[in-house]
Design a protein around this nucleic acid. Structure first.
Lengths: 338, 338
DNA sequence: TTGAAAGCGATACCAT
DNA sequence: ATGGTATCGCTTTCAA
């Protein structure tokens, strides 16, 4: 490959191969019939020149960029501390790779989403997946206005009816957790909830409360965390200080469950003998706690696969088509903490 | 704003405003003089149509995309567990924002960097910052071949002379750590090293060894970790099992230092009375250990600022200019573990 | 099968 | 200050 000052153009390739731009283009993209001879000549020229199509030019005429954005409307600390995102991105990357799409990650600082919006309106990507873990700043409305194909993972607080959404049944799963605890004979069941301004936190708490009330049990034992291990420890201490009689805990994340278990251990309380506990997520930590944690498996893989499917479908339809909503049901994973 | 099926073009804006495309473009970009009247008419039309310039078209003629890539040639688990990346991306995002550039994050799965390379060759970005935390797959050579402006944070194993690099003096810093330990009277100093295939891991160990030998001390007490807390615990146990007399430890990351401290505590060894310890990074954990950790501050902020400066400079020069190397010196942060 | 030419949607030069 | 027009690099009719 020759070292060149600037990237080579299709024109140069065509000239070197002794054919027209049209033929060169066809040979490269392989969509149309080209004589074996021309084919070879073009490919040689491409190699010789180290040619790669100019993305801007190609996008301009094709009205396609071949890349989709994943938008994380979160502070970077959150993004880089919650295993949820790692798992999700991993799945997204895989799904997009299969469809030959490039993943472009857009970190939207909570305040300055304007520049990201500008980027999206510039049509630098064909579509977007928004992991709306957080109460977001009208992102759903903005994207909907924009007319850019998009799918939300997790229901946004605002404008959920205007965009496609893939979610899991957080409330139903929490109810399931409560049922397991009740079946094992627990009666004084507390919740370590997630942040109130996050959909998942909100819905899981609601499910816990509803199921508890349906069972005629007290639903006043609540402490809030932020999904981190440390906050789980603090919340658990708070709970125990207020009421030493607690015999069951539902934690809205495995990390918080882990933190809670540390606190229980520090106080000499045994799991599950003295206090049973159910977590949420099953992203790896759950298997490694001592004892292994009973939890709800957040179906991230399924959600992502479906999200990418919906998105590419929408893109292929040229952005037309009504928003669609899909909900997956988390599965209870029985281990040894109940 | 009118809801439209497709994004509007400059042509439509111009027509609605009753001016030519040229004038409309000038009014929008504000580079050239436009009469107040035309200005207003165009801006109104823009608002009315919800117009945003088409990125592809603009890039094509400007030969600029207004976005730069940050490439992380790492598995996503690593990226999302090591606080180094969070801190770095935070700094990059800030620096780019100041220059009105869009950050595009490219996660290069260790195996499949080809599609990312294709993206880069397509000139979808003006330049790239590579956080080469890891032994990378000839990325420096590839990018250099490509002619795309780029800056590496951390010296790549291969082709470092062909690209610009910003790094910190890992070896020198490690030597500093050893000196502090020696000065406090320690003589049997062990190292908890990072992975051998990571530059930072390699260089820090080398610095430790060199300084120890210069002081006429034994440099055989080494255990390897992978920068995580858990690996620090394991490595520390390994070290202690092999030689109970250790009185000083240099850990190549704060996380590993933390893990080591947990192990020391579990064995009833007191820090710093029985064993002194120095970490590396100072990314937050160091302040919160018990007791607070003496460590080397990895100057991530400085490195990133410089990297972005170098990159934009290179971009502005049209990619010409020789590769440049800049090295920062980590600062010793004295706390209570020595 | 191939080539000439018409766009895609912007910017910028050159007159006016 | 403004408008006409060439241009960026590519894909895709339309004829031949």
């Amino acid at each position: 490959m020759v070292v060149k000052a600037h990237a080579s153009t299709l024109d140069e390739v065509a000239r070197l191969a002794g054919v027209s731009k049209a033929t060169a283009s066809r040979a490269i993209n392989g969509r149309s019939k080209v004589s074996a001879k021309a084919q070879a000549a073009v490919l040689d020229a491409v190699r010789e020149l180290g040619y790669t199509p100019n993305g801007a030019a190609r996008s301009l005429v094709m009205q396609r960029t071949g890349s989709v954005a994943v938008i994380l409307p979160e502070s970077d600390e959150r993004v880089f501390s919650d295993p949820f995102f790692a798992r999700m991105l991993h799945a997204v990357a895989r799904a997009l790779r299969e469809r030959d799409l490039q993943l472009v990650l857009l970190l939207a600082q909570p305040g300055d989403e304007s520049r990201m919006l500008l980027y999206l309106r510039g049509r630098y990507v064909d579509g977007a997946i928004v992991a709306s873990h957080h109460r977001d700043d009208r992102l759903a409305e903005h994207l909907s206005d924009l007319g850019l194909p998009c799918v939300f993972i997790g229901t946004p607080w605002l404008g959920a009816d205007r965009v496609s959404v893939v979610d899991s049944d957080n409330a139903g799963a929490a109810a399931q957790a409560v049922r397991v605890l009740v079946e094992s004979g627990r009666r004084r069941i507390a919740a370590i909830a997630g942040p109130r301004d996050m959909r998942a936190g909100h819905d899981r708490l609601a499910g816990w409360r509803q199921e508890l009330e349906a069972a005629g049990l007290d639903s006043s034992r609540v402490a809030y965390g932020d999904f981190t291990e440390h906050s789980g420890t603090t919340a658990c201490a708070e709970l125990l200080d207020a009421d030493g009689d607690i015999d069951g805990i539902f934690a809205a994340s495995d990390l918080m469950a882990l933190g809670a278990m540390r606190e229980l251990e520090a106080r000499g309380l045994r799991v599950p003998d003295d206090v049973a506990i159910v977590g949420y997520d099953d992203l790896g930590v759950a298997e490694r706690t001592q004892p292994p944690l009973t939890t709800l498996r957040n179906p991230i893989g399924q959600m992502v696969t479906e999200a990418v499917r919906l998105l590419t479908e929408t893109i292929d339809q040229g952005g037309r088509g009504a928003p669609r909503h899909v909900v997956f049901v988390p599965e209870l994973v029985r281990r040894d903490t109940v």
